[in-house]
């Protein structure tokens, strides 16, 4: 038995629900996406149509069904050193200044937030960049850096925390010398070394929740996730990040995203053909 096709009203209700749950904004042209991705959940819950499913979710306070909706609507795709630029900016621009602050004693610890860390490639790429930097700058040590990695998906976080990757995942963007230095291999599985794992803390966090509790950060990476959000939600997130950043702290977004028309709190800076943003709030 097939569920009835989604009506325009049902689509609007579910679209709003999805946006409330995780911020993902869907235009009318995404009707098929809601229909095909949620249909199995209707079946699983014995709902005849999308209206019945909406009523079920609205009356069910437990997080399980809501988590499943979010999982069905999000993608976890990621890779090592994605876009390359952010990591050369970190190495050539941000770390030298922060290292100087550390050795002068004007700062004791550097905090970095990877705000949609998926299966861990982004925070571990940050950790490797820092480790490499410390190898050539013995005045600073990796334990002076703390990386917080968060995501809304519990299963993506589980994989990230395991720090285990197969050949196909490890090959995407990870240079072999770094792979051999920071991972060990058993059969087909590559596991992140403890020295790198120690630098990263994983935690479940929905970007819609208040950020203040996470503390202050010197650098925030928010990449390939705001593209799915409405302008209103983007404003809220970038505004929150601006207040979370230390004075003159930095925000790094993806090559396909932009703050133009969204946030005035940041100044765009360039390094080679890549760009990054500095917080203007004091």
């Amino acid at each position: 038995m097939m569920a009835d096709a989604i009506s325009a009203t049902e689509f609007r209700l579910l679209r709003d629900l999805i946006e409330r749950l995780c911020g993902i904004a869907l235009g009318d042209e995404k009707t098929y996406l809601v229909e095909t991705r949620l249909a199995p959940l209707l079946a699983e819950n014995g709902c005849q149509d999308f209206g019945a499913f909406y009523r079920l979710v609205s009356s069910d306070p437990s997080p399980q069904l809501r988590d499943k909706i979010v999982d069905a609507m999000t993608t976890n795709e990621t890779l090592w050193f994605r876009d390359t630029h952010p990591f050369s900016i970190l190495r050539d621009r941000l770390l030298p200044q922060l290292a100087a602050d550390l050795s002068q004693g004007s700062r004791f610890r550097i905090r970095i937030w990877s705000a949609a860390s998926s299966t861990g490639q982004e925070p571990y790429s940050i950790a490797m960049t820092i480790h490499e930097f410390c190898r050539s700058n013995p005045a600073v040590r990796p334990d002076q850096f703390e990386i917080l990695a968060t995501d809304i998906s519990p299963s993506a976080l589980f994989v990230a925390k395991l720090g285990r990757y197969d050949q196909a995942a490890i090959a995407r963007g990870l240079p072999e010398p770094l792979r051999d230095r920071y991972f060990h291999q058993e059969g087909h599985v590559w596991t992140v070394n403890d020295e790198l794992k120690r630098m990263v803390t994983f935690r479940k966090f929905n970007l819609q929740d208040p950020m203040e509790a996470l503390g202050r950060f010197d650098i925030v990476f928010l990449r390939y996730v705001a593209i799915y959000f409405s302008d209103g939600f983007k404003r809220q997130i970038y505004g929150g990040i601006a207040r979370l950043l230390a004075p003159e702290g930095h925000l790094i977004i993806s090559a396909v995203e932009s703050l133009r028309g969204i946030s005035e709190d940041f100044q765009q800076l360039t390094h080679g053909s890549g760009s990054y943003y500095q917080c203007q709030l004091s």
Binding site: M1, P40, L41, A43, E44, G46, D71, T75, N76, E77, T78, S118, T119, Q121, S153, P154, S155, A156, L157, F158, V159, K161, D166, A168, A169, R172, F202, K204
Partner: peptide
Amino acid sequence: IQAGAVNYLCKPFQADDLTVKIAESLGEGF
């Protein structure tokens, strides 16, 4: 799903999505 499957994944998929889906189906979370 009505017959009792817990999850599904459409091909083609990215490696990360496969890993996360299998972890979900195993009930592995954070």
